[in-house]
């Protein structure tokens, strides 16, 4: 009884969330009144049939997943060494400094950051001017208004979430385990591969799931930095509401994407479990 009571606030929050998705589902059964922004009955499965016929949103779904997976992998590749350094450096000063820089990025709003990236990544931006002054390139690289620019901004946005998740995981790997591995004749690189990496894998998986979720829901950076070329699901849904004013179909796309995203995250968790089982029997390259 008591346990039920303490769970009440969490259940309530969950119920509200589930209710929101429930209303998405229900709204999807209605129809747009043509030429207006209004919604009317009667209920029909028409929008769901349109969704499953898939003409409009399928390429957008595919693009979004591919883009998000690339962004997530880039985040892991950049973020893991960073997290490892923060977790393992002997210098308290460096650890605090790195963490402060990461957390500071939380403090600036997304719009501000998007403008910042325009200044940095533009044709006449800091990056291109620097590369040209150094004589590394002759013509400016086109980064802004392309997937690359959106990806860079997104990785920068997601990085602190990933790093802060993984730092904890690495710090939870006792240093004595790394020492024991070194002691038994294993060099630092193989020690990392056989001990540190597998033991921080749960944290990496957690960080990747978080990164993927953030990338999948990206909206502002594609809108502001994508030059109209980078359209992710969130932008597609936005267009359904604010351009086509077809709120019922937007609701169906949202619900459909939610299901796909949950599926992707569950797949990742399953992958993590499988990897852990694999490591349990002796580590990478055993």
């Amino acid at each position: 009884m008591k346990r039920n009571l303490t769970a009440l606030p969490a259940m309530l929050a969950l119920a509200v969330l589930a209710g929101a998705y429930g209303s998405f589902f229900a709204t999807g059964l209605l129809r747009q009144v043509p030429g207006t922004a209004s919604v009317a009955g009667p209920a029909s499965a028409e929008n769901y049939l349109k969704f499953f016929s898939g003409a409009g949103q399928l390429p957008v779904f595919a693009d979004t997943f591919i883009f998000s997976i690339i962004v997530t992998l880039a985040t892991v590749i950049i973020g893991y060494p960073l997290a490892y350094f923060i977790a393992r450096t002997e210098s308290r000063f460096l650890r605090v400094a790195f963490l402060a820089v990461l957390v500071a990025t939380f403090l600036s709003g997304s719009v501000t950051r998007a403008y910042g990236w325009m200044v940095i990544l533009g044709n006449r931006g800091l990056l291109n001017s620097m590369l040209m002054n150094m004589g590394l390139i002759e013509a400016p690289l086109r980064i802004l208004y392309r997937q690359l620019g959106v990806g860079i901004a997104l990785v920068h946005f997601i990085l602190p979430f990933f790093v802060l998740t993984v730092v904890g995981g690495i710090r939870n790997v006792p240093r004595a385990l790394e020492e024991a591995s070194r002691d038994l004749g294993c060099g630092p690189v193989r020690t990392f591969a056989k001990v540190t990496l597998p033991l921080s894998l749960p944290a990496i998986a957690e960080g990747m799931a978080l990164s993927l979720a953030l990338a999948l829901s990206a909206f502002l950076f594609p809108l502001m930095l994508g030059g109209g070329r980078v359209r992710l699901v969130a932008n597609y849904i936005y267009d359904q509401i604010f351009v086509a004013f077809d709120i019922p179909f937007a609701a169906v796309v949202s619900a459909g994407f939610l299901v796909c995203s949950c599926g992707a995250l569950m797949l990742m968790m399953a992958l993590q479990k499988a990897l852990l089982r694999r490591f349990a029997t002796g580590g990478i390259g055993a």
Partner: peptide
């Protein structure tokens, strides 16, 4: 504390 590798038999 022995530092046994917890992910290995």
């Amino acid at each position: 504390g022995y530092a046994l590798f917890p992910h290995m038999s």
